[in-house]
Design a protein around this nucleic acid. Structure first.
Lengths: 149, 149
DNA sequence: AATCTAATGCAAATATGTTGCATTAAAGCT
DNA sequence: AGCTTTAATGCAACATATTTGCATTAGATT
């Protein structure tokens, strides 16, 4: 997904040492066009490198804490992680297909949220607005239609 | 929260037998002013009745499937459940406080989503739009301010 | 090289949700 | 009422996701 982001740089700007594993985690997340679960990230990395499951979790926590990635609740049981919005990647809603379990990024314009207007009337600090649309994706719709015959 | 809803009626309209346990689950959800996790519902019921954890899960699944309640991803690890929108309860966004873990219902107007407009441009079936705002609630802000001194 | 600290690994624990099968209860019949 | 059937609930075990505590390793600093 992201070939414009310099992950080493991103890490260092956040005051994090840019270790090999942290870079690997960031690359897997950044190269994918939809957010991934810890398990998916772990499995992807395991194919090429040696890394421990727990290390993945810890790196994810760290990156979330520093705001490099977002923890998104995909409609399923596990969290998924995607690059946090930045100048290359605007914030955007997600679509969760209840049928195949896929989580897809939608384009940013498809839903507009006026954060500043919200903040004016809300008695707390707003850090993030997460919008998720649930339903059935077009692939699954097609499959269902066919299997009904 | 809801004293206008006739749960027995709701159940029967959905083609579900109105058993004591189903009513109890619905009442706990409906009486609360923010959505609850399966665990919270189970613990609440356990104080007064005998009920099995699994039964709670199964009833929740059933009620979600029939559209009586919504399964919402509260920013934490577990799903939470709230009454589905109906004439007494319009759909509304939620606020998740990362500090205390509370999930709060916001009023419906605070964020407006035009489902029909979305559906026109989206190549799939939209069943639900979930909006969650993450941040720090006013209580936690106050506490933090005090403890800094 | 020795020292120190942060990063990673490993094993075990915890939390949440699910499954299969046994038991119970309710509804409808005779 | 007793019998039969079906759906609802319980129980034990499993599965998955995440977290914790402590051991080890690697990298930076002296």
């Amino acid at each position: 997904m992201c070939h414009q982001c310099d992950y080493t740089n991103l890490l260092e700007e956040s005051g994090l040492e840019s270790t090999p594993k942290r870079l690997q985690v960031l690359e897997v997340i950044g190269d994918n066009n939809s957010p991934l679960s810890a398990r998916q990230i772990f499995e992807t990395l395991s194919r090429t490198y040696n890394i421990n499951r727990v290390t993945v979790y810890r790196i994810l926590d760290l990156l979330v804490e520093k705001g490099l990635i977002d923890r998104i609740s995909g409609g399923s049981r596990s969290f998924v992680y995607g690059l946090a919005p930045n100048e290359n990647h605007p914030a955007h809603p997600h679509f969760y297909c209840k049928s195949c379990g896929n989580l897809e990024c939608l384009n940013p314009q498809s839903l507009n949220v006026d954060m500043q207007a919200m903040q004016r009337t809300f008695p707390g600090v707003i850090e993030n607005v997460e919008v998720r649309i649930d339903g059935v994706c077009k692939n699954c719709l097609r499959t269902e239609r066919n299997s009904v015959h």
